[in-house]
Design a protein around this nucleic acid. Structure first.
Lengths: 341, 341
DNA sequence: CTGAAAGCGCTTACAG
DNA sequence: CTGAAAGCGCTTACAG
């Protein structure tokens, strides 16, 4: 920078003003500086800038690697956020830290990042206390129970479930089961998506006059297969199954087939939150609601960066998953009698 | 740091020496400094340290987001590297940059990272020129053709293919097809894994006296389904299919089933590089060779960090994928005549 | 074993 | 519109 200033015959302050567009510079000096910069191949040093300006232009995504698997959806959130950050000239680091906030506090102390995007938010999340205590700007992908003043974006679970139930109901299904998450698993204690989906379903199913059956299920294909067995045994009147976890959804389909039940002829299966790549893996191809992963990753980074730049805050956004018809849902089988009450 | 030094009655230099373990410090002063640090809740500022020491302790993983999808395997590489980095007190940023090296050069100019881990390496990779020209330390996950002096780790394709062919051959299969990558796709021009797998297969199959049939295929389930159709039509004598891409492998299985062919009774299908989560999605569960993703991610970061710390270099490592028997491979069907020559 | 001081390469009041 | 200078919070020769 000193070299550039010298060559252009100005002070380094002026070069800095031009670079940051922080004070007006005459067209003439601008031209001289710019020429000097290209001649010298100058690039501004990000570390020195960070130290002087107290802004590193690095943001972190905190991910609970121990508690949650890093699956396709997570990858979408992350790469979506990384691309949004890059567009705004920020860098995104991945912090695999525990849900208790201890490691997070440790890392924040280093002063390396300007802010944090929090993923896999719990209804009452210790990491948020850490962020608030340390005065770190942050944005949530997900929601806590108490959202006062928090920047957040999330899936619109109400609309998503509403859309799913409506679609299934309008096809004529009246005996549904929701295969939800297993909230008894300590790794998912108070895990927002599971709680919210289940609550939304209970309310909406009741509105449609449907009997509410909810089965908990782990987040793996194997867990899905097991639940398929129990479901057929315990709720044989079922004609349509809504599945929250994408891996479980595939397990349900293959579990049913192994039990000799045709999908969708005997059981329609609808995945509530899935990525297209996973849906394509299913046979028959899954009818699903597409997780807005790239969009939420983008918005989460965007919300944080707006806050960092003191721009107009991004209003909280709830994005519904949208329906992608496949071949795993059809009209209910006619050949079985409705359940007697 | 000044506060700590003051409180402990020493100079800031001494605090720094202790912190970095760069010069010996008496037990007494050490104790005083450490007490002062805990009392003040001191944490060393990473940015100032980076500027003064010219080492940021940040490494980047360059990922060609435009050319390659960020799938399960990629996620494993990345999270594996992130965890290894964290253990060594480094941070990992994701740089979604193009394969041509232009964006990479731009980012390197900022001086934010100490080095780069390169993923999805091409046999002749322009990004390596950029790294060398800028004098940036780097490590490869993958290999170029010319490897002179480059730190790298990669899948051991030779051993992997060897193991696969041996397993299939010993079960009695004599009519194999390799479903490889589509090197005509410009996004995968000179893409190492595809080239190496295909070369290894041609050599090894010949050693076993097998006729060599290789079919190119895209990296999606749909592409796999289409290839299944062509395969049955063009090579009906086939009894075993080796598939390179994990998504294509699932497509082949479901494609065969749709054509009315049983897996594994009529066609055995073996996935050459797959993650367990994907294998579990298949029906029947896939017999596969497990991509050493977490391990390679770890080793890639490790190799780079060793180089950065001037430690003994990590010798180049080739890790084979190991066989995980599932239910998609069995002995060849007896009911069809061997191909007449 | 410890300290005084220069310097890393920028930004930013402050002054003109 | 431009500049001189302090300072961001550390590390690291150099000296003792």
């Amino acid at each position: 920078m000193r070299d550039v200033a010298e060559r252009a015959g100005v002070s380094i302050a002026t070069v800095s003003f031009l670079l940051n567009d922080t004070k007006p510079v005459t067209a003439a000096t601008r031209a001289r500086i710019e020429q000097a910069m290209t001649e010298l191949g100058y690039r501004r040093n990000a570390v020195a800038r960070a130290l002087a300006s107290r802004r590193t232009h690095i943001i972190a995504m905190a991910y609970p690697a121990m508690e949650h698997r890093f699956g396709m959806s997570t990858a979408e959130f992350f790469t979506g956020a990384a691309e949004a950050a890059r567009k705004e000239a920020y860098h995104l680091v991945l912090w695999p830290v525990g849900n208790d906030g201890v490691e997070l506090r440790e890392l924040l102390g280093q002063g390396l990042v300007d802010g944090v995007v929090l993923m896999e938010v719990q209804l009452d999340d210790p990491r948020i206390d850490v962020l608030e205590q340390t005065g770190t700007p942050f944005a949530l992908i997900g929601r806590t129970t108490d959202l006062e003043g928090l920047s957040h974006v999330d899936i619109d679970f109400d609309t998503t479930v509403q859309e799913a139930v409506e679609y299934i109901h309008q096809l004529g299904h009246r005996e549904l089961v929701l295969v939800s998450g297993d909230l008894a698993d300590p790794r998912f204690d108070g895990y927002g998506p599971w709680v919210r989906t289940e609550n939304a379903y209970r309310r909406i199913a009741a509105e449609y006059g449907l009997r509410v059956v909810v089965m908990p299920c782990g987040d793996t294909t194997h867990a899905g297969r097991e639940v398929a067995e129990r479901l057929v045994a315990e709720h044989p009147e079922t004609t349509a199954i809504l599945v929250l976890n994408e891996y479980a959804a595939l397990g349900i389909v293959s579990g049913l087939r192994h039990l000799g039940h045709a999908v969708p002829e005997e059981f329609s299966v609808l995945a509530l939150l899935m990525v297209p790549e996973t849906a394509a893996l299913s046979d028959p191809e899954m009818t699903f609601l597409r997780t807005p992963g790239p969009e939420l990753g983008h918005l989460g980074a965007e919300a944080l960066i707006r806050r960092l730049e003191n721009a107009d805050p991004l209003p909280p956004q709830l994005i519904p998953a949208d329906l992608r018809p496949g071949a795993s849902v059809t009209t209910p089988r006619p050949n079985r009698k409705p359940r007697r009450t």
